[in-house]
Design a protein around this nucleic acid. Structure first.
Length: 413
RNA sequence: GUGGCUAUAGUUUAGUGGUAAAACUCCGGUUUGUGGAACCGGUAUCGAGGGUUCAAUUCCCUCUAGUCACCCCA
């Protein structure tokens, strides 16, 4: 510290993480509240886990390399390897596996928590993000897949999105794997093939063909026919009125634990090219913890892409102050001011007072800037007469009202 | 992690090898018991460090951060 004592601290946040000023936090709260309302309407229960997990939880599933390079992992004072969770799925699998005998299946569980990934930041990708995770455990029929996708659809609708604003793509991991493996020289080439197919939009057809010919002696045909499982899900979703869903035979998800249906929700606006949601069925994951399998299907969606989506569509809510009433101080005692505010609060109105001696105009300006709904000026005249002018700032409507009736006036406005 | 681009006041931007300009915002003041207006004043070690030069905000290098592409996307 000694040689740095003169150096000013930076006001920037740590690389890739965000500060949430009140306006940002209000948006964040709106997103969380909308998520919560939508998932609870499907009967999902909220759970939570610690942000810290033993590193081996991720090594088991994702491999050494990804833990070392893509996560925040450190050694604690007891020589334990600790990771800041980069995702929720292993944690929730751990919870379910731990109490498999006492939980009453099927489970519908959700959480809204923050995650850390050591990646190079850019639009739609930061190092700390929040994610809604929804999972259903214990149902292996496609009706669970249908419900989970319906839930994803409903979340989008509850943000005010129209069907044309987003598109749901579904595929089946097993079908995909079997079809691709059938064409490969060796099934060990599957990861390479998957990666290549994933990049099909980004590279030229010639380039693709050259790469493909290295791992297969058959033509690549992207029109793999859907199987009955996919057809069932699609037709059930259509029965539920969900039309913007489509089978995508080359949809893959990054990790290998998906055993059946996989799906992604995309913004149709070209400015936001990242997936808004991703999920699928992972029936084998709980076997990491021993014991029998538990069928599971779920998805995650992040706050960053959701916010980008809402911004581009103009669906963000207007920021408003938590205070409904701002009391401007026109030269009354602090005691008067605080007492009056307290009386109004006791009637259920959220009140902020101006504790400065600034000019009335400036105090009102402050209320306007904070987007408070109502303002009253409290001076000696008002105390004496027991009557104030209450102004609704948005409409500029101003009325005389008794101090004792301010709360009722606001409630009845 | 690799490569490209960018970095000037709180914000958006101008500008120059001779230590910087505008608009808006913000803060303070004058006038006005109500969001306004007018006027006055204030706010920049030109992202950080180093090099070239008599002189660097300007040219060069490194770093940091942002952004785009790659990678990855659990």
């Amino acid at each position: 510290m000694t040689d740095k004592s003169n150096k000013q601290l930076s006001t920037d946040p740590y690389k890739g993480v965000r500060d949430f000023y009140p306006e940002d936090q209000a948006i964040q709260n709106y997103i969380f509240a909308t998520w919560r309302k939508a998932v609870e309407s499907f009967g999902y229960n909220e759970y939570n886990t610690s942000i810290l997990e033993p590193a081996e939880l991720y090594r088991a599933k994702s491999g050494e390399e990804i833990v070392n390079e893509q996560t925040y992992t450190f050694t604690d004072r007891g020589e334990r390897e600790v990771t800041l969770r980069p995702e929720m799925t292993p944690s929730v699998a751990r919870l379910v596996a731990a109490k498999k005998r006492e939980l009453s299946f099927p489970l519908r569980w959700y959480s809204i928590q923050n995650f850390f990934r050591y990646e190079r930041p850019q639009r739609g990708r930061v190092r700390e993000f929040w994610q809604l995770n929804c999972d259903m455990f214990g149902v292996d029929s496609t009706s669970a897949d249908v419900e989970v996708i319906q839930l994803a659809y409903n979340i989008m609708k509850s943000f005010g999105a129209r069907d044309g604003d987003f598109k749901i793509y579904i595929n089946n991991a097993k079908l995909f794997r079997e079809n691709i493996n059938g064409k490969l020289l060796d099934t060990e080439l599957f990861p390479k093939a998957k990666k290549l197919i994933d990049s099909i939009q980004k590279i030229s057809k010639e380039e693709f063909d050259v790469e493909w010919s290295k791992i297969s002696n058959q033509q690549f045909d992207r029109s793999i026919a859907a199987n009955t499982e996919i057809e069932t899900i699609l037709s059930q979703l259509k029965m539920l009125g969900i039309e913007n869903v489509e089978y995508n035979p080359i949809l893959t998800r990054g990790f290998d634990y998906y055993t059946g249906t996989v799906f992604e929700v995309y913004d149709t606006n070209p400015e936001n090219r990242r997936a808004l949601f991703g999920g699928g069925r992972f029936d084998d994951l709980l076997s990491l913890f021993g014991g029998e399998k538990v069928p599971a299907v779920g998805f995650g969606m992040g706050d960053v892409t959701m916010r980008d989506f809402l911004e581009v569509r103009g669906l963000l809510p207007q920021f408003t102050s938590p205070a409904q009433l701002y009391i401007v101080n026109a030269g009354v005692s602090a005691e008067q001011l605080l007492t009056r505010a307290t009386e109004i609060r006791e009637k259920g109105i959220r009140v902020a007072t101006d504790l400065t001696t600034r000019k009335i105009g400036d105090q009102i300006k402050k209320a306007v800037k904070d987007a408070v709904e109502f303002v009253v000026v409290l001076g000696e005249n008002e105390i004496t007469s027991g009557e104030v002018s209450i102004k609704h700032l948005a409409s500029e409507k101003e009325e005389k009202v008794r101090i004792a009736e301010i709360a009722d006036y606001i409630k009845g406005f």
